[in-house]
């Protein structure tokens, strides 16, 4: 893993591959596209909020469903004790 960090871009370099405006194929890079057009699209100064709520809103929806499913799993694990107890009793009796 230390060897892998050799190829990473220098931290804080505004001219690295990740931070340039147009990539090698001529398409706009996502981060700079968000910076340039977030306020124009949604009139919201906080760019992270716009990316979270508008550009990647389906991602956020799936993530919220993951959080809610974790809550439901917790309810099911911690309240489903009776069936297990009955099954184990029956196995002990037989």
């Amino acid at each position: 893993m230390f060897f892998a960090t050799v190829d990473l871009p220098t931290r804080g370099d505004a001219d690295s591959v990740m931070n340039q405006e147009v990539n090698d194929n001529g398409n706009p890079v996502a981060g700079n596209y968000y910076i340039q057009s977030a306020y124009k699209d949604a009139k919201t100064p906080n760019i992270v909020t716009v990316v979270l709520g508008d550009y990647r809103s389906i991602d956020t929806l799936g993530e919220q469903i993951v959080v809610f499913t974790a809550g439901l799993i917790l309810v099911l694990i911690l309240s489903g004790h009776r069936k297990e107890r009955k099954v184990s009793n029956r196995e002990e009796n037989s």
Binding site: K40, D41, A42, K43, T44, T49, V50, G53, D54, S57, T60, Q64, V67, F68, A70, G71, L74, V75, L78, S79
Partner: peptide, 29 residues
């Protein structure tokens, strides 16, 4: 543009409500 502004505010309220309730649920259980 301002419809997107309002829509982001509405979904932030939904996200906040869900996260708050799931955290309280985790603690209670």
């Amino acid at each position: 543009e301002y419809l997107r502004y309002t829509g982001i505010l509405i979904i932030e309220i939904g996200v906040g409500l869900a996260v708050m309730m799931v955290m309280i649920l985790l603690y209670d259980k």
